[in-house]
Simulated assay, not measured.
Amino acid sequence: MKKGVLLINLGSPDSPKPKDVKKYLGEFLMDERVIDVPLWARTLLVKGIILNTRPKASAKAYQKIWWEEGSPLIVLSERLQNKVQSKVDYPVALAMRYGSMSIKKGLQELVDQGCTEIKTVPLYPQFAMATTETIDVLVDELVTEHFPQVTITKTPAFYHRQDYIDVLTQSIAEKLEGLDYEHILFSYHGVPERHIRKSDITNGNCKMNGKCCFKKGSPQHEFCYRHQCEITTVNVAKKLGLKNGTYSTTFQSRLGFDPWLKPYTDRTIERMGKAGVKKMAIVTPAFVSDCLETLEEIAMEGEEIFHEVGGKDFTVIPCLNDRDDFAQVLATMIEEWATTPETASV
């Protein structure tokens, strides 16, 4: 049985034009694990409201960050794929959960090369219903319908792998070297609080107060996005030698009026600036590739907020992107799977 690997990232519109952005947003927001309300309500919200108002504004945001080569997320993901491929002896394909670079096409590319054992690698360090889970579910559906001869091995969240923490820490340390800053913000993509409850395999043990995130050995941590974000911050801060009070965890990119994970990144930036913080650094560990949420929402909008309230220096730390050491982390994960005598399929 020939082994292959499918790296999977979020996705991107084909262009920053409103029609392409609208198509992309429609697929993304109609996912029942992104907006987890009944179909009729999701359809009314997405097709009746959001897709009639948001595409033009989103297209303008994409135009600000679009590269000559294309979407930053796609370009950086392709560069990462090439580096991982250079480090392993197994075919490595790339797919996106949303958009034209579909998971079905990625699986087909590997099958066409004779692969019958495929490891899927969602490029999300932390598990979330709207990221890793929606990928895993779609892969299962596609294999059942189109690739019954293929055995899939899923990759769990890797936020706690020591080599990942080492690389993330190194990427931050390089940017902070010689930099005078007062506070470092760890900003993660937000999710509705109800997503955390729905992912709680202990049926209500999560108190949503932040305290249970730090209890050791709790079984719900395997699927608790908030816990995994908090622990990522703790592990990196410890390795960087950061003092309490000089760093914090926040959540960005909320949508709608339901409660999302707090504290919110934009409001924290504003509050700290008003409180007299003049020099802030910010890192976005939920993203491995720079994209709209990091290049526009943080690096542009976040900096603007900080300056408006009196902040001076706003340092944005790049995502891991196509760093050689991050590509090696993924290559190591692949080798661990490929060389295990009995590869466990899920």
Rank of each mutant, 00 (worst) to 15 (best):
K47A: 13
K47V: 11
K47G: 15
K47C: 13
G48A: 10
G48Q: 14
I49D: 12
I49S: 13
I49G: 14
L51K: 15
L51P: 13
L51I: 13
N52R: 15
N52D: 10
N52C: 08
T53C: 09
T53K: 08
T53V: 14
T53A: 08
R54S: 00
R54E: 00
P55W: 11
P55L: 13
K56Y: 11
K56Q: 10
A57K: 14
S58R: 09
A59V: 00
K60F: 08
A61S: 10
A61R: 12
A61L: 07
Q63V: 07
Q63W: 09
K64Q: 11
I65S: 09
I65Q: 07
W66A: 06
W66Y: 06
W67G: 06
W67D: 13
E68C: 10
G70V: 11
S71M: 14
P72L: 01
P72M: 03
L73H: 01
V75H: 03
V75I: 05
L76P: 01
S77N: 05
S77R: 05
E78P: 01
E78M: 04
R79D: 10
R79P: 06
R79Y: 09
R79A: 11
L80D: 01
L80Q: 07
L80T: 00
Q81P: 06
N82I: 00
N82K: 15
K83C: 06
V84M: 03
Q85E: 01
S86N: 03
S86Y: 05
V88L: 10
D89C: 08
Y90N: 05
Y90H: 07
Y90E: 03
V92F: 12
V92Y: 09
A93K: 11
L94Y: 08
L94P: 02
L94W: 08
A95H: 01
A95E: 01
Y98C: 11
G99Y: 02
S100F: 12
M101K: 12
S102L: 08
K105E: 03
G106H: 05
G106Y: 02
L107G: 00
Q108F: 04
Q108T: 03
E109F: 10
E109C: 11
V111C: 09
D112A: 09
D112W: 04
Q113M: 11
Q113F: 07
G114V: 04
G114M: 09
G114D: 02
C115D: 02
C115T: 05
I118N: 02
K119V: 13
K119N: 12
K119P: 04
T120V: 15
T120I: 15
T120F: 13
T120Q: 12
V121S: 07
V121W: 10
